[in-house]
Design a protein around this nucleic acid. Structure first.
Length: 475
RNA sequence: CGGGGCGUAGCGCAGCCCGGUUAGCGCGCCUGCUUUGGGAGCAGGAGGCCGAGAGUUCAAAUCUCUCCGCCCCGACCA
């Protein structure tokens, strides 16, 4: 079995750490709360970026880049925003050996600097909509950190759009949360619940926040992406007006939306197992690895030669031939399983003689002997099957661990064991959420879309509510 | 910021209570030979300011004080 990986059932969070570290995804840096993302982890982020970037561009967005430093006065312009972010800002007070006249924050998010800029870009209704995305790092001074899930610095993308009307902004916010849903499902093989955040959980400065919530293997929720309708709050704070067709000067409507390297943590906790990482094929930097087997130099030349011959014409980024001489095949099998490569192809002297190879898939561990002829087609089919299989396993778990509960005592007892709970809670009342958190360390994850019309009494106050919310413990 | 733990070789640890040869062990690393279809074997070798500073002592990894860092559990968060 895998050396040194804690079993999931023994200690889920230690298992997670073991996988991240042993699969060489990331490691702790000398800097408190910050991580080093290693090539294996960064390669997955690059795949995510490539796909998301394409989806953003297909929906009309373009990329730009704004400064890392944000003058303190900018942050203070929007009241709710500053209240939400001030406590977690890192501030730069010195530069060039001198105390700065005005301290600058290292961006916790870029709304303020972007809206200070948009003010100059937007004059007329013809300038709208303005659809911009930025790939960047941000910094939030977290008390407690966990690799990928919560670190002081992390990588993300943040979309910032400006629209002429409330309706258009609303459409945009909804469009982008749906882009996230689609990305999560199709590429990460991670089913999600789409919904709206409650007042207390929404973004600091948003009118409302939409989100996708995923369920990890231990039943805890992970907020995997958010999309905010910012209304006119930032337009008013930064005085961004446009002249409309009717000659009137109007404030623009805004959205922002983001996903981060936290998704990598979500991917790990959705698919990986006690042998290590499992990467969905569509996110695998290298989907296929060949492990050649030989006894003599002669055989080595023959086997390696054959492997190279078979893969002639294949995309070089699609596969790797592990020709290292210092490790035995068994070692390599385990290593590539630990690192989550979706398909492993074993090729030895026997195979070369029979014109076959052995194809092993990471999700089920199944091995099959297949002819070299038509191998690429076989492998592509296997990858597709793995992608589907990972998704349906995750979806099955989500369904099986989503419970409908009406009684608070029952909820309190069961929520500890993980899972999503469909419950009636008066989410308009902040005291309800406070009590919920105090009693159970769980929160309302979202007010889901696509919920059946149901009416019932709030589990805590008894007040009639329409529609159930999803409550759960979360990361 | 409260509670707990840990800093000794690249990694994981022992040694510390009870001070005293040359600071050990496993993994990894280097060299050589034999191996190679599920984590190889043998032989040889390199690698340490014992987290930092101050003290006690003839003598400190070990005792005392101070500091620093990190991890884990709670309050805040993508």
């Amino acid at each position: 079995m895998s050396k040194g990986i804690t079993k999931r059932e023994e200690d889920y969070s230690q298992w997670y750490l073991d996988v991240v570290l042993k699969a060489e995804m990331a490691e702790y840096s000398p800097v408190r709360g910050c991580m080093v993302i290693r090539p294996t982890g960064y390669g997955i982020w690059e795949k995510m970026q490539q796909r998301l970037d394409r989806m953003f561009k297909e929906t009309g967005h373009v990329n730009a880049y704004f400064p890392l430093f944000i003058p303190e006065s900018f942050l203070k312009k929007e009241a709710e925003h500053v209240e939400g972010f001030a406590p977690e800002c890192a501030m730069v007070t010195h530069g060039g050996g001198k105390r700065l006249e005005e301290p600058m924050a290292i961006r916790p998010t870029s709304e303020t600097i972007i809206w200070a800029t948009y003010k100059n870009w937007i004059k007329s209704y013809r300038d709208l909509p303005l659809l911009i995305n930025q790939w960047a790092n941000v910094c939030r001074w977290e008390m407690r950190t966990r690799l990928f899930l919560r670190t002081c610095e992390f990588l993300w993308q943040e979309g910032h759009t400006a629209h002429a009307t409330h309706e258009e902004a609303e459409e945009e916010a909804l469009r982008m949360v749906d882009v996230y849903r689609q990305f999560a499902e199709e590429y990460m093989a991670m089913p999600v619940v789409v919904g709206r955040k409650t007042e207390s959980e929404k973004f600091a400065g948003a009118e409302h926040t939409y989100c996708i919530e995923a369920m990890m293997q231990d039943g805890k929720a992970l907020q995997a992406g958010t999309s905010h309708h910012l209304g006119q709050k930032f337009a008013r704070a930064f005085d961004v007006k446009f002249q409309d067709r009717d000659k009137e000067l109007k404030y623009v409507y805004a959205t922002s939306w983001g996903v981060s390297t936290r998704l990598i943590g979500g991917m790990i906790m959705t698919h990986s197992d006690d042998k290590g990482l499992v990467i969905p094929p569509k996110l695998a930097p290298t989907p296929v690895v060949f492990v050649p087997i030989w006894h003599s130099d002669e055989e080595m030349n023959m086997v390696l030669g054959k492997a190279r011959e078979i893969t002639t014409g294949w995309d070089p980024l699609f596969f790797k031939i592990d020709d290292r001489d210092q490790y035995k095949p068994g070692y390599k099998f385990n290593e590539w399983e630990l690192k989550g490569v979706p398909v492993r192809i074993e090729i030895g002297p026997k195979d070369v003689n029979n014109s076959t190879v052995v194809v092993a898939r990471r999700d089920t561990g199944d091995k099959a002997t297949v002819p070299m002829d038509g191998l690429l087609t076989h492998v592509e089919a296997a990858l597709e099957s793995i992608q589907k299989n990972l998704y349906s396993a995750a979806q099955k778990r989500l369904q099986e661990r989503t419970f409908t509960v009406d009684n608070y005592d029952e909820y309190t007892e069961r929520v500890e064991g993980g899972g999503f709970f469909r419950v009636f809670l008066d989410h308009a009342n902040p005291a309800v959420e406070e009590k919920l958190q105090e009693d159970t360390r769980s929160t309302i994850r979202c007010i889901p879309f696509n919920a059946p019309d149901e009416e019932g009494p709030c589990m805590i106050t008894g007040k009639p509510c329409s529609g159930r919310v999803i409550a759960a413990q979360s990361y």
